[in-house]
Nucleic acid binder design. Structure first.
Length: 551
DNA sequence: AATCATGACAACCGCAAGTTT
DNA sequence: CAAACTTGCGGTTGTCATGAT
Protein backbone atom coordinates (compact mmCIF):
# COMPACT_ATOMS: atom_id res chain seq x y z
CA UNK A 1 0.00 0.00 0.00
CA UNK A 2 1.54 2.64 -0.98
CA UNK A 3 2.01 5.40 1.12
CA UNK A 4 2.10 7.59 -1.84
CA UNK A 5 1.23 10.54 0.13
CA UNK A 6 4.76 11.44 0.50
CA UNK A 7 5.38 11.48 -3.14
CA UNK A 8 2.19 13.17 -3.95
CA UNK A 9 2.78 15.81 -1.46
CA UNK A 10 6.33 16.08 -2.22
CA UNK A 11 7.61 19.36 -2.71
CA UNK A 12 4.38 20.86 -2.00
CA UNK A 13 4.67 20.58 1.61
CA UNK A 14 8.28 21.24 1.49
CA UNK A 15 7.59 24.33 -0.40
CA UNK A 16 4.95 25.28 1.99
CA UNK A 17 7.31 24.85 4.77
CA UNK A 18 9.96 26.82 3.18
CA UNK A 19 7.66 29.52 2.27
CA UNK A 20 5.87 29.43 5.47
CA UNK A 21 6.39 32.37 7.64
CA UNK A 22 6.62 30.00 10.46
CA UNK A 23 9.53 28.36 8.92
CA UNK A 24 11.86 31.03 9.98
CA UNK A 25 10.39 31.15 13.35
CA UNK A 26 10.40 27.52 13.93
CA UNK A 27 12.99 27.71 16.55
CA UNK A 28 10.60 26.74 19.15
CA UNK A 29 10.17 23.17 20.11
CA UNK A 30 7.08 21.21 19.74
CA UNK A 31 5.54 23.15 22.42
CA UNK A 32 6.56 26.48 21.17
CA UNK A 33 3.84 28.85 21.19
CA UNK A 34 2.59 30.05 17.95
CA UNK A 35 4.04 27.35 15.85
CA UNK A 36 1.74 24.74 14.62
CA UNK A 37 3.54 21.54 14.12
CA UNK A 38 2.61 19.48 11.20
CA UNK A 39 1.04 16.14 11.60
CA UNK A 40 0.15 13.41 9.26
CA UNK A 41 2.14 11.71 6.58
CA UNK A 42 5.63 12.83 5.95
CA UNK A 43 6.59 14.16 2.61
CA UNK A 44 9.78 13.25 0.88
CA UNK A 45 10.90 16.80 1.33
CA UNK A 46 10.51 16.49 5.03
CA UNK A 47 12.30 13.23 4.91
CA UNK A 48 15.13 14.84 3.10
CA UNK A 49 15.40 17.53 5.64
CA UNK A 50 15.37 15.09 8.43
CA UNK A 51 17.91 12.83 6.85
CA UNK A 52 20.21 15.68 6.20
CA UNK A 53 19.87 16.86 9.68
CA UNK A 54 20.57 13.50 11.15
CA UNK A 55 23.52 12.97 8.88
CA UNK A 56 24.90 16.18 10.03
CA UNK A 57 24.14 16.07 13.67
CA UNK A 58 23.50 12.50 14.34
CA UNK A 59 20.59 10.91 16.02
CA UNK A 60 19.16 12.16 19.17
CA UNK A 61 18.13 15.50 20.42
CA UNK A 62 15.13 15.25 18.25
CA UNK A 63 13.53 18.35 19.44
CA UNK A 64 16.47 20.19 18.05
CA UNK A 65 15.58 18.93 14.65
CA UNK A 66 12.50 20.93 14.61
CA UNK A 67 14.32 23.88 15.96
CA UNK A 68 17.17 23.85 13.56
CA UNK A 69 15.98 22.17 10.45
CA UNK A 70 12.83 24.04 9.92
CA UNK A 71 10.71 21.00 10.00
CA UNK A 72 7.36 21.57 11.48
CA UNK A 73 7.46 18.32 13.24
CA UNK A 74 7.80 17.60 16.84
CA UNK A 75 10.86 15.78 17.98
CA UNK A 76 8.87 12.78 18.69
CA UNK A 77 7.58 12.61 15.21
CA UNK A 78 11.05 13.09 13.83
CA UNK A 79 12.42 10.32 15.91
CA UNK A 80 9.67 8.02 14.83
CA UNK A 81 10.08 8.89 11.22
CA UNK A 82 13.77 8.33 11.38
CA UNK A 83 13.54 5.13 13.26
CA UNK A 84 10.82 3.62 11.17
CA UNK A 85 11.56 4.88 7.72
CA UNK A 86 14.67 6.88 7.25
CA UNK A 87 17.18 5.08 9.28
CA UNK A 88 19.82 3.34 7.23
CA UNK A 89 19.76 -0.39 6.82
CA UNK A 90 16.09 -0.57 7.22
CA UNK A 91 14.67 -3.55 5.54
CA UNK A 92 11.54 -2.81 3.67
CA UNK A 93 9.05 -5.13 2.23
CA UNK A 94 7.20 -8.07 3.49
CA UNK A 95 8.61 -10.18 6.19
CA UNK A 96 10.35 -13.25 5.02
CA UNK A 97 9.16 -16.59 6.24
CA UNK A 98 12.13 -16.77 8.51
CA UNK A 99 11.38 -13.42 9.91
CA UNK A 100 7.80 -14.33 10.43
CA UNK A 101 8.76 -17.43 12.21
CA UNK A 102 11.14 -15.54 14.34
CA UNK A 103 8.52 -13.03 15.23
CA UNK A 104 6.21 -15.73 16.32
CA UNK A 105 8.88 -17.30 18.40
CA UNK A 106 9.89 -14.05 19.91
CA UNK A 107 6.37 -13.16 20.68
CA UNK A 108 5.91 -16.44 22.36
CA UNK A 109 8.79 -15.55 24.56
CA UNK A 110 8.46 -11.88 24.94
CA UNK A 111 4.92 -10.97 24.35
CA UNK A 112 4.28 -7.54 23.02
CA UNK A 113 7.80 -6.36 23.48
CA UNK A 114 8.07 -5.00 20.02
CA UNK A 115 11.22 -3.08 20.48
CA UNK A 116 12.93 -6.02 22.00
CA UNK A 117 11.71 -8.21 19.26
CA UNK A 118 12.94 -5.75 16.72
CA UNK A 119 16.38 -6.14 18.14
CA UNK A 120 16.32 -9.67 16.90
CA UNK A 121 15.25 -8.66 13.45
CA UNK A 122 17.87 -6.48 11.86
CA UNK A 123 16.42 -3.88 9.64
CA UNK A 124 12.99 -4.25 11.07
CA UNK A 125 11.28 -1.81 13.31
CA UNK A 126 9.18 -2.39 16.26
CA UNK A 127 6.33 -0.73 14.49
CA UNK A 128 6.57 -3.10 11.62
CA UNK A 129 6.61 -6.04 13.86
CA UNK A 130 3.76 -4.73 15.82
CA UNK A 131 1.71 -4.12 12.75
CA UNK A 132 2.58 -7.46 11.39
CA UNK A 133 1.62 -9.15 14.55
CA UNK A 134 -1.62 -7.34 14.92
CA UNK A 135 -2.54 -8.13 11.39
CA UNK A 136 -1.46 -11.65 11.82
CA UNK A 137 -3.50 -12.31 14.84
CA UNK A 138 -6.52 -10.89 13.17
CA UNK A 139 -5.99 -12.97 10.15
CA UNK A 140 -5.40 -16.12 12.02
CA UNK A 141 -8.20 -15.42 14.30
CA UNK A 142 -10.54 -15.23 11.43
CA UNK A 143 -9.10 -18.27 9.88
CA UNK A 144 -9.38 -20.15 13.09
CA UNK A 145 -5.72 -20.89 13.06
CA UNK A 146 -3.50 -21.09 16.03
CA UNK A 147 -1.47 -18.10 16.69
CA UNK A 148 1.57 -20.13 17.37
CA UNK A 149 2.12 -22.87 14.87
CA UNK A 150 3.07 -26.19 16.34
CA UNK A 151 6.43 -26.08 14.72
CA UNK A 152 7.18 -22.87 16.40
CA UNK A 153 6.16 -24.31 19.66
CA UNK A 154 8.37 -27.23 19.09
CA UNK A 155 11.31 -25.16 18.20
CA UNK A 156 10.81 -22.95 21.10
CA UNK A 157 10.57 -26.00 23.16
CA UNK A 158 13.85 -27.27 21.98
CA UNK A 159 15.49 -24.01 22.53
CA UNK A 160 13.93 -23.67 25.85
CA UNK A 161 15.26 -26.99 26.87
CA UNK A 162 18.71 -25.80 26.14
CA UNK A 163 18.13 -22.70 28.05
CA UNK A 164 16.48 -24.56 30.80
CA UNK A 165 19.48 -26.63 31.49
CA UNK A 166 21.56 -23.58 31.95
CA UNK A 167 19.07 -21.07 33.06
CA UNK A 168 17.25 -20.68 36.22
CA UNK A 169 14.20 -18.90 37.08
CA UNK A 170 16.11 -15.81 36.93
CA UNK A 171 17.78 -16.28 33.72
CA UNK A 172 15.61 -13.77 32.13
CA UNK A 173 18.01 -10.97 32.15
CA UNK A 174 20.81 -12.82 30.69
CA UNK A 175 18.65 -14.51 28.26
CA UNK A 176 16.90 -11.62 26.96
CA UNK A 177 19.84 -10.51 25.01
CA UNK A 178 19.64 -13.52 22.94
CA UNK A 179 16.55 -15.26 23.75
CA UNK A 180 16.58 -17.12 20.57
CA UNK A 181 19.89 -18.61 21.17
CA UNK A 182 19.37 -19.74 24.61
CA UNK A 183 16.13 -19.24 26.15
CA UNK A 184 16.42 -19.14 29.78
CA UNK A 185 13.08 -17.74 30.49
CA UNK A 186 11.73 -19.91 33.03
CA UNK A 187 8.14 -19.93 32.24
CA UNK A 188 8.53 -20.34 28.59
CA UNK A 189 10.87 -23.14 29.14
CA UNK A 190 8.49 -24.95 31.23
CA UNK A 191 5.79 -24.24 28.87
CA UNK A 192 7.67 -25.58 26.03
CA UNK A 193 8.49 -28.63 27.95
CA UNK A 194 4.92 -29.11 28.49
CA UNK A 195 4.30 -28.52 24.90
CA UNK A 196 6.73 -31.13 24.07
CA UNK A 197 4.97 -33.54 26.20
CA UNK A 198 1.82 -32.72 24.48
CA UNK A 199 3.25 -32.63 21.08
CA UNK A 200 2.28 -29.12 20.89
CA UNK A 201 -1.03 -29.65 19.45
CA UNK A 202 -4.12 -27.64 19.28
CA UNK A 203 -3.11 -24.31 20.30
CA UNK A 204 -6.52 -23.21 21.10
CA UNK A 205 -9.25 -24.35 23.11
CA UNK A 206 -12.09 -24.42 20.79
CA UNK A 207 -14.30 -23.13 23.26
CA UNK A 208 -14.97 -19.87 24.52
CA UNK A 209 -14.00 -16.74 23.42
CA UNK A 210 -12.16 -15.57 26.16
CA UNK A 211 -13.16 -12.93 28.35
CA UNK A 212 -9.76 -11.87 28.46
CA UNK A 213 -9.45 -11.29 32.05
CA UNK A 214 -6.35 -9.44 31.43
CA UNK A 215 -8.02 -7.03 29.22
CA UNK A 216 -10.80 -6.63 31.57
CA UNK A 217 -8.52 -6.27 34.41
CA UNK A 218 -6.26 -3.80 32.93
CA UNK A 219 -8.46 -1.74 30.87
CA UNK A 220 -11.71 -2.13 32.37
CA UNK A 221 -13.87 -4.83 31.20
CA UNK A 222 -13.57 -6.08 27.81
CA UNK A 223 -11.43 -3.40 26.61
CA UNK A 224 -9.63 -5.64 24.32
CA UNK A 225 -11.22 -6.37 21.09
CA UNK A 226 -10.02 -9.83 21.39
CA UNK A 227 -10.62 -10.12 24.98
CA UNK A 228 -14.10 -9.21 25.22
CA UNK A 229 -15.38 -12.55 24.36
CA UNK A 230 -17.71 -14.02 26.71
CA UNK A 231 -19.47 -17.18 26.67
CA UNK A 232 -23.00 -16.87 25.67
CA UNK A 233 -23.82 -18.85 28.67
CA UNK A 234 -22.06 -16.54 30.90
CA UNK A 235 -23.84 -14.47 33.36
CA UNK A 236 -22.90 -11.21 32.03
CA UNK A 237 -24.63 -9.23 34.53
CA UNK A 238 -22.67 -10.60 37.32
CA UNK A 239 -19.56 -10.31 35.45
CA UNK A 240 -19.08 -6.69 35.50
CA UNK A 241 -20.71 -5.79 38.59
CA UNK A 242 -19.12 -4.30 41.59
CA UNK A 243 -16.17 -3.66 39.52
CA UNK A 244 -15.39 -0.34 40.87
CA UNK A 245 -16.11 -0.93 44.44
CA UNK A 246 -14.63 -4.32 44.57
CA UNK A 247 -11.66 -3.69 42.50
CA UNK A 248 -9.89 -1.81 45.04
CA UNK A 249 -10.60 -4.25 47.70
CA UNK A 250 -10.05 -7.25 45.68
CA UNK A 251 -6.96 -6.04 44.15
CA UNK A 252 -5.68 -5.29 47.49
CA UNK A 253 -6.59 -8.59 48.78
CA UNK A 254 -4.60 -10.27 46.25
CA UNK A 255 -1.52 -8.57 47.16
CA UNK A 256 -1.58 -9.96 50.51
CA UNK A 257 -2.37 -13.24 49.15
CA UNK A 258 1.13 -13.46 47.90
CA UNK A 259 3.42 -12.51 50.60
CA UNK A 260 6.51 -13.49 48.88
CA UNK A 261 7.67 -14.23 45.48
CA UNK A 262 11.30 -14.24 45.94
CA UNK A 263 11.59 -16.89 43.42
CA UNK A 264 9.76 -15.08 40.80
CA UNK A 265 11.76 -13.29 38.39
CA UNK A 266 11.47 -9.72 37.92
CA UNK A 267 9.26 -9.49 35.04
CA UNK A 268 7.11 -12.20 36.24
CA UNK A 269 6.78 -10.51 39.48
CA UNK A 270 6.17 -7.33 37.77
CA UNK A 271 3.39 -8.66 35.75
CA UNK A 272 1.93 -10.52 38.52
CA UNK A 273 2.22 -7.63 40.78
CA UNK A 274 0.58 -5.41 38.34
CA UNK A 275 -2.09 -7.79 37.73
CA UNK A 276 -2.59 -8.51 41.28
CA UNK A 277 -2.43 -5.08 42.39
CA UNK A 278 -4.61 -3.91 39.71
CA UNK A 279 -8.07 -3.22 40.73
CA UNK A 280 -9.51 -5.25 38.05
CA UNK A 281 -13.12 -5.67 37.88
CA UNK A 282 -13.66 -8.93 39.29
CA UNK A 283 -16.64 -10.88 38.89
CA UNK A 284 -18.44 -11.56 41.98
CA UNK A 285 -19.81 -14.58 40.48
CA UNK A 286 -17.49 -17.51 40.45
CA UNK A 287 -19.58 -19.12 37.90
CA UNK A 288 -18.51 -16.72 35.38
CA UNK A 289 -16.78 -18.56 32.73
CA UNK A 290 -13.42 -17.16 32.42
CA UNK A 291 -11.37 -18.67 29.85
CA UNK A 292 -8.18 -19.10 31.47
CA UNK A 293 -6.60 -21.47 29.40
CA UNK A 294 -7.87 -19.46 26.81
CA UNK A 295 -7.06 -16.36 28.16
CA UNK A 296 -6.08 -14.10 25.91
CA UNK A 297 -5.46 -11.40 27.77
CA UNK A 298 -3.24 -9.34 26.27
CA UNK A 299 0.28 -9.03 26.31
CA UNK A 300 -0.23 -5.52 26.26
CA UNK A 301 -1.78 -5.60 29.49
CA UNK A 302 0.70 -7.45 31.29
CA UNK A 303 3.36 -6.54 29.15
CA UNK A 304 2.90 -3.78 29.54
CA UNK A 305 2.15 -0.99 28.72
CA UNK A 306 1.40 0.07 31.88
CA UNK A 307 0.58 3.39 30.75
CA UNK A 308 -2.99 2.81 30.29
CA UNK A 309 -3.31 -0.12 32.43
CA UNK A 310 -1.58 0.85 35.46
CA UNK A 311 -3.09 -0.33 38.56
CA UNK A 312 -5.35 2.30 39.57
CA UNK A 313 -6.95 1.29 42.62
CA UNK A 314 -10.45 1.76 42.83
CA UNK A 315 -11.68 2.55 39.51
CA UNK A 316 -11.91 0.93 36.24
CA UNK A 317 -10.28 2.87 33.64
CA UNK A 318 -12.68 4.42 31.29
CA UNK A 319 -10.17 4.25 28.60
CA UNK A 320 -11.50 2.19 25.83
CA UNK A 321 -9.62 0.55 23.12
CA UNK A 322 -10.90 0.46 19.68
CA UNK A 323 -13.20 -2.42 19.91
CA UNK A 324 -14.23 -2.30 23.40
CA UNK A 325 -17.56 -1.50 24.64
CA UNK A 326 -18.28 1.26 26.90
CA UNK A 327 -18.62 0.29 30.42
CA UNK A 328 -22.15 1.20 30.23
CA UNK A 329 -22.61 -1.39 27.67
CA UNK A 330 -20.97 -3.86 29.80
CA UNK A 331 -23.13 -3.01 32.57
CA UNK A 332 -26.06 -3.40 30.37
CA UNK A 333 -25.15 -6.91 29.72
CA UNK A 334 -26.65 -7.84 32.91
CA UNK A 335 -30.01 -6.91 31.70
CA UNK A 336 -29.77 -7.64 28.09
CA UNK A 337 -29.25 -11.14 26.97
CA UNK A 338 -27.10 -10.41 24.05
CA UNK A 339 -24.19 -8.34 25.05
CA UNK A 340 -22.83 -5.93 22.62
CA UNK A 341 -20.50 -8.33 21.09
CA UNK A 342 -17.86 -7.44 18.73
CA UNK A 343 -17.85 -8.91 15.39
CA UNK A 344 -15.04 -11.01 16.35
CA UNK A 345 -16.88 -12.10 19.33
CA UNK A 346 -19.78 -13.06 17.31
CA UNK A 347 -17.60 -14.90 14.98
CA UNK A 348 -16.15 -16.81 17.81
CA UNK A 349 -19.35 -17.65 19.32
CA UNK A 350 -20.89 -18.58 16.12
CA UNK A 351 -18.02 -20.30 14.57
CA UNK A 352 -17.48 -23.96 14.92
CA UNK A 353 -16.01 -24.67 18.22
CA UNK A 354 -13.21 -26.76 17.17
CA UNK A 355 -10.84 -24.67 15.45
CA UNK A 356 -10.64 -21.23 16.02
CA UNK A 357 -12.93 -19.75 18.37
CA UNK A 358 -10.41 -19.83 20.90
CA UNK A 359 -8.43 -17.74 18.82
CA UNK A 360 -9.58 -14.65 20.34
CA UNK A 361 -7.70 -15.50 23.32
CA UNK A 362 -4.76 -16.61 21.61
CA UNK A 363 -4.72 -13.99 19.16
CA UNK A 364 -5.36 -11.17 21.33
CA UNK A 365 -2.90 -8.56 20.59
CA UNK A 366 -2.88 -7.72 24.11
CA UNK A 367 -2.28 -10.87 25.69
CA UNK A 368 -1.24 -10.40 28.99
CA UNK A 369 -2.74 -12.93 29.94
CA UNK A 370 -2.13 -15.58 32.14
CA UNK A 371 -1.20 -13.70 35.14
CA UNK A 372 -3.89 -11.25 34.72
CA UNK A 373 -6.31 -13.96 34.23
CA UNK A 374 -5.12 -15.73 37.26
CA UNK A 375 -5.42 -12.77 39.36
CA UNK A 376 -8.71 -11.99 37.96
CA UNK A 377 -9.93 -15.39 38.67
CA UNK A 378 -8.62 -15.34 42.14
CA UNK A 379 -10.28 -12.12 42.59
CA UNK A 380 -13.42 -13.53 41.29
CA UNK A 381 -13.20 -16.27 43.75
CA UNK A 382 -12.58 -14.03 46.57
CA UNK A 383 -15.27 -11.80 45.37
CA UNK A 384 -17.61 -14.70 45.16
CA UNK A 385 -16.70 -15.60 48.61
CA UNK A 386 -17.39 -12.16 49.73
CA UNK A 387 -20.52 -12.11 47.84
CA UNK A 388 -21.75 -15.20 49.52
CA UNK A 389 -20.81 -13.75 52.79
CA UNK A 390 -22.74 -10.73 52.02
CA UNK A 391 -25.72 -12.71 51.17
CA UNK A 392 -25.51 -14.65 54.33
CA UNK A 393 -24.85 -11.74 56.49
CA UNK A 394 -26.56 -9.25 54.34
CA UNK A 395 -25.29 -6.73 56.71
CA UNK A 396 -22.30 -5.05 55.30
CA UNK A 397 -20.97 -4.37 51.92
CA UNK A 398 -17.50 -5.18 52.98
CA UNK A 399 -16.85 -8.45 54.55
CA UNK A 400 -13.94 -9.23 56.76
CA UNK A 401 -12.67 -11.47 54.13
CA UNK A 402 -12.56 -8.67 51.73
CA UNK A 403 -10.53 -6.60 53.96
CA UNK A 404 -8.17 -9.33 54.81
CA UNK A 405 -7.66 -10.37 51.29
CA UNK A 406 -7.33 -6.92 50.16
CA UNK A 407 -4.62 -6.19 52.55
CA UNK A 408 -2.80 -9.29 51.64
CA UNK A 409 -2.79 -8.54 48.04
CA UNK A 410 -1.52 -5.13 48.53
CA UNK A 411 1.39 -6.39 50.38
CA UNK A 412 2.12 -8.83 47.76
CA UNK A 413 2.09 -6.23 45.13
CA UNK A 414 4.52 -4.16 46.98
CA UNK A 415 6.93 -6.94 47.28
CA UNK A 416 6.61 -7.98 43.77
CA UNK A 417 7.42 -4.60 42.62
CA UNK A 418 10.84 -5.15 43.96
CA UNK A 419 11.39 -8.05 41.73
CA UNK A 420 10.44 -6.54 38.53
CA UNK A 421 12.39 -7.56 35.63
CA UNK A 422 11.45 -5.77 32.56
CA UNK A 423 13.22 -8.30 30.58
CA UNK A 424 11.53 -11.35 31.68
CA UNK A 425 8.95 -12.42 29.27
CA UNK A 426 7.27 -14.58 31.65
CA UNK A 427 4.11 -12.81 31.75
CA UNK A 428 3.79 -12.67 28.12
CA UNK A 429 5.44 -15.78 27.32
CA UNK A 430 3.40 -17.69 29.62
CA UNK A 431 0.40 -16.00 28.44
CA UNK A 432 1.15 -16.35 24.88
CA UNK A 433 1.99 -19.89 25.10
CA UNK A 434 -0.79 -20.75 27.30
CA UNK A 435 -3.19 -18.95 25.30
CA UNK A 436 -1.99 -19.81 22.01
CA UNK A 437 -0.50 -23.14 22.33
CA UNK A 438 -2.98 -24.43 24.67
CA UNK A 439 -3.47 -28.00 24.01
CA UNK A 440 -6.81 -29.19 24.44
CA UNK A 441 -5.82 -32.40 25.77
CA UNK A 442 -5.33 -32.76 29.35
CA UNK A 443 -2.61 -34.73 30.80
CA UNK A 444 -5.01 -37.47 31.18
CA UNK A 445 -6.53 -37.08 27.84
CA UNK A 446 -4.76 -37.79 24.71
CA UNK A 447 -4.13 -35.31 22.07
CA UNK A 448 -6.06 -37.34 19.68
CA UNK A 449 -9.03 -36.79 21.71
CA UNK A 450 -10.14 -33.28 21.25
CA UNK A 451 -11.67 -31.87 24.28
CA UNK A 452 -15.24 -30.98 24.25
CA UNK A 453 -15.81 -27.53 23.16
CA UNK A 454 -17.59 -26.69 26.29
CA UNK A 455 -14.95 -27.79 28.61
CA UNK A 456 -11.44 -27.02 29.18
CA UNK A 457 -10.09 -30.32 30.06
CA UNK A 458 -6.69 -29.09 30.65
CA UNK A 459 -7.83 -27.67 33.84
CA UNK A 460 -8.77 -30.92 35.22
CA UNK A 461 -5.61 -32.55 34.43
CA UNK A 462 -3.60 -29.83 35.68
CA UNK A 463 -5.21 -29.74 38.95
CA UNK A 464 -4.31 -33.29 39.41
CA UNK A 465 -0.82 -32.72 38.38
CA UNK A 466 -0.46 -29.91 40.69
CA UNK A 467 -1.84 -31.94 43.40
CA UNK A 468 0.89 -34.36 42.93
CA UNK A 469 3.45 -32.80 45.01
CA UNK A 470 6.04 -31.19 42.95
CA UNK A 471 9.37 -32.16 44.14
CA UNK A 472 12.67 -31.46 42.62
CA UNK A 473 13.02 -35.10 41.84
CA UNK A 474 9.81 -35.36 40.01
CA UNK A 475 9.71 -31.93 38.64
CA UNK A 476 11.21 -32.66 35.35
CA UNK A 477 9.17 -35.66 34.63
CA UNK A 478 6.11 -33.99 35.73
CA UNK A 479 6.81 -31.05 33.61
CA UNK A 480 6.56 -33.17 30.60
CA UNK A 481 3.32 -34.46 31.76
CA UNK A 482 1.93 -31.12 32.47
CA UNK A 483 -0.54 -29.73 30.27
CA UNK A 484 1.08 -26.77 28.81
CA UNK A 485 -2.18 -25.09 28.84
CA UNK A 486 -1.62 -24.53 32.42
CA UNK A 487 0.74 -21.94 33.51
CA UNK A 488 0.02 -22.81 36.98
CA UNK A 489 1.34 -26.21 36.48
CA UNK A 490 4.44 -24.69 35.22
CA UNK A 491 4.77 -22.46 38.10
CA UNK A 492 4.04 -25.25 40.37
CA UNK A 493 6.76 -27.25 38.87
CA UNK A 494 9.15 -24.56 39.70
CA UNK A 495 8.22 -23.55 43.08
CA UNK A 496 5.49 -25.46 44.58
CA UNK A 497 5.11 -28.74 46.19
CA UNK A 498 2.13 -28.49 48.39
CA UNK A 499 -1.33 -29.17 47.37
CA UNK A 500 -3.07 -26.39 45.68
CA UNK A 501 -6.09 -26.83 47.70
CA UNK A 502 -4.28 -26.18 50.86
CA UNK A 503 -2.75 -23.17 49.38
CA UNK A 504 -5.97 -21.83 48.19
CA UNK A 505 -7.48 -22.53 51.48
CA UNK A 506 -4.81 -20.60 53.17
CA UNK A 507 -5.11 -17.80 50.77
CA UNK A 508 -8.73 -17.46 50.15
CA UNK A 509 -10.32 -19.56 52.71
CA UNK A 510 -11.40 -23.11 52.96
CA UNK A 511 -14.65 -22.59 51.28
CA UNK A 512 -13.03 -21.06 48.30
CA UNK A 513 -10.50 -23.75 48.18
CA UNK A 514 -13.22 -26.26 48.20
CA UNK A 515 -14.85 -24.51 45.39
CA UNK A 516 -11.66 -24.35 43.56
CA UNK A 517 -11.18 -27.98 44.01
CA UNK A 518 -14.57 -28.60 42.74
CA UNK A 519 -13.95 -26.58 39.71
CA UNK A 520 -10.64 -28.17 39.19
CA UNK A 521 -12.22 -31.54 39.35
CA UNK A 522 -13.78 -30.51 36.16
CA UNK A 523 -17.17 -31.86 36.60
CA UNK A 524 -18.92 -31.68 33.31
CA UNK A 525 -21.52 -29.64 34.86
CA UNK A 526 -19.27 -27.10 36.23
CA UNK A 527 -17.19 -26.91 33.17
CA UNK A 528 -20.02 -26.52 30.92
CA UNK A 529 -21.76 -24.07 32.97
CA UNK A 530 -18.71 -22.25 33.94
CA UNK A 531 -16.88 -22.37 30.76
CA UNK A 532 -13.29 -22.07 31.64
CA UNK A 533 -13.79 -20.94 35.06
CA UNK A 534 -12.16 -24.01 36.33
CA UNK A 535 -9.07 -23.21 34.48
CA UNK A 536 -8.47 -20.03 36.21
CA UNK A 537 -8.63 -21.80 39.41
CA UNK A 538 -6.13 -24.27 38.44
CA UNK A 539 -3.97 -21.66 37.07
CA UNK A 540 -4.17 -19.73 40.16
CA UNK A 541 -3.27 -22.52 42.39
CA UNK A 542 0.40 -22.21 42.09
CA UNK A 543 0.19 -18.70 43.15
CA UNK A 544 -1.77 -19.69 46.09
CA UNK A 545 0.79 -22.19 46.94
CA UNK A 546 3.40 -19.66 46.55
CA UNK A 547 1.92 -17.54 49.10
CA UNK A 548 1.47 -20.42 51.36
CA UNK A 549 4.90 -21.80 50.99
CA UNK A 550 6.86 -18.69 50.58
CA UNK A 551 5.84 -16.44 53.29
C1' DA B 1 -20.45 -0.86 -10.37
C1' DA B 2 -21.09 -0.21 -5.57
C1' DT B 3 -20.27 -1.68 -1.11
C1' DC B 4 -18.01 -3.93 2.43
C1' DA B 5 -14.26 -6.41 4.63
C1' DT B 6 -9.65 -6.95 5.18
C1' DG B 7 -4.70 -6.13 4.95
C1' DA B 8 -0.89 -3.23 5.20
C1' DC B 9 1.05 0.64 6.64
C1' DA B 10 1.99 5.06 8.80
C1' DA B 11 1.49 8.03 12.30
C1' DC B 12 -0.15 9.83 16.71
C1' DC B 13 -0.94 9.55 21.60
C1' DG B 14 -0.09 8.73 26.32
C1' DC B 15 2.81 7.06 29.56
C1' DA B 16 7.05 6.01 31.91
C1' DA B 17 11.89 5.88 32.62
C1' DG B 18 16.00 8.21 32.26
C1' DT B 19 18.58 12.42 31.98
C1' DT B 20 19.47 17.14 32.52
C1' DT B 21 18.91 21.50 34.64
C1' DC C 1 16.13 17.27 45.26
C1' DA C 2 12.58 18.48 42.28
C1' DA C 3 11.08 20.08 37.95
C1' DA C 4 11.71 20.00 33.15
C1' DC C 5 13.09 17.75 29.29
C1' DT C 6 14.22 13.80 26.29
C1' DT C 7 13.69 9.45 24.70
C1' DG C 8 11.58 5.12 24.09
C1' DC C 9 7.78 2.00 24.10
C1' DG C 10 3.40 0.12 23.30
C1' DG C 11 -1.45 0.88 22.07
C1' DT C 12 -4.48 2.87 19.09
C1' DT C 13 -6.27 5.14 15.13
C1' DG C 14 -6.59 6.56 10.43
C1' DT C 15 -5.84 5.95 5.56
C1' DC C 16 -5.41 3.65 1.38
C1' DA C 17 -5.31 -0.45 -1.62
C1' DT C 18 -7.20 -4.65 -2.75
C1' DG C 19 -10.33 -8.39 -3.02
C1' DA C 20 -14.82 -10.37 -2.22
C1' DT C 21 -19.70 -10.01 -2.38
Amino acid sequence: MSRTTNESEDGMLYKDQIDSPLMDESNGGSGNGGIVLKKGPWTSAEDTILVEYVNRHGEGNWNAVQKHSGLFRCGKSCRLRWANHLRPNLKKGAFTPDEERLIVELHAKMGNKWARMAAHLPGRTDNEIKNYWNTRIKRRQRAGLPLYPPEVCLQALQESQQGQSSGGINGADGAHNDSMQANSFEIPDVVFDSLKGNNCVLPYVPELPDISPGGMLMKGLGSSPYCGFMSPTMHRQKRLRESTALFSTSGGSFKNGFPQFDQFQNDTCDKIARTVGFPFPHDPDPTIPLSFGVIQGSHSLSNGNSSASKPTTGAVKPELPSLQYPETDLGSWSTSPPPPLLESVDAFIQSPPLVGTFESDCTSPRNSGLLDALLHEAKTLSSANNHSSEKSSNSSSVTPGDVAESSNLNICETEWEEYRDPISPLGHSATSLFNECTPISASGSSLDEPPPAETFTGCNVESELVDQAWTPDTERETALQLDYTRPDAILASEWFGNSMHESIASLLGDDLAAECKHLASGSPTSNQGLGFSSCPWNTMLPFCEMSAQHP
